[in-house]
């Protein structure tokens, strides 16, 4: 790989650092009583309210339908994901340093597989929360589950839940796109160096 390609791979690996600070997913809830909005931001290592105390408010609402409280400290993914991201950054940098195309290709494949795995896991997580409802729930509607959509909007009782990738995901997407682009750069440019 030529220098320019290697620099691009290095940048796309390093920019993943941003995912530690930017939410990768956002779930926003709209209901008549919440004109000011209510939402969750999901980070690789944290789930927080979109605004202060929103997480408490959402848990508060969810307890009526018997949904488990969302407590970030009890979600194992939030503990594992930072390591995965660090691993991806280091692996990407290794590819950039060595300039081995195979290594970079492996990195991209691994990256995409992990991203898809992440989405699947997220879907499962949502499914788990939306379906495993307490038998003691005050509000029980036969046949009703409360899984928010993976991407898109859905009306769950009085609440419209909208789930969308957020800034952190765009970073991941750009990182993958940039590193894929680096593979397309022709090695002959190397001669110029």
């Amino acid at each position: 790989m030529n220098t320019r390609a290697r620099v691009i791979v290095a940048i796309s690996a390093l920019m993943l650092v941003l995912t530690f600070f930017l939410p990768i997913w956002s779930i926003s809830l709209q209901a008549p009583q919440y004109p000011e909005g209510l939402g969750l931001h999901i980070y690789i290592n944290e789930v927080t309210g979109a605004k202060p105390h929103n997480l408490d408010s959402i848990n508060e609402l969810n307890h009526y339908i018997g949904m488990k409280a969302i407590t970030p400290e009890s979600i194992p993914e939030l503990k594992i994901m930072p390591y995965i991201i660090v691993f991806l950054i280091l692996f990407g940098l290794l590819g950039a340093v060595t300039g081995k195309k195979k290594l970079v290709e492996a990195w991209i494949v691994m990256f995409i597989v992990l991203a898809i795995a992440g989405l699947v896991d997220f879907y499962m997580w949502e499914y788990h929360y939306g379906h495993n409802l307490s038998a003691d729930a005050p509000i029980k509607i036969p046949g009703m589950s409360y899984q928010p959509p993976l991407i898109g909007s859905e009306k769950l009782l009085n609440i419209t839940a909208t789930s969308l990738p957020f800034i952190g995901s765009f970073v991941i997407f750009i990182s993958i796109a940039m590193s894929a682009f680096s593979l397309l750069l022709k090695p002959k440019e190397k001669i110029k160096d």
Binding site: P52, S57, E60
Partner: peptide, 10 residues
């Protein structure tokens, strides 16, 4: 009765 309202919603 020392009552604390734990709510943090408007």
């Amino acid at each position: 009765f020392h009552v604390t309202n734990l709510e943090q919603d408007w």
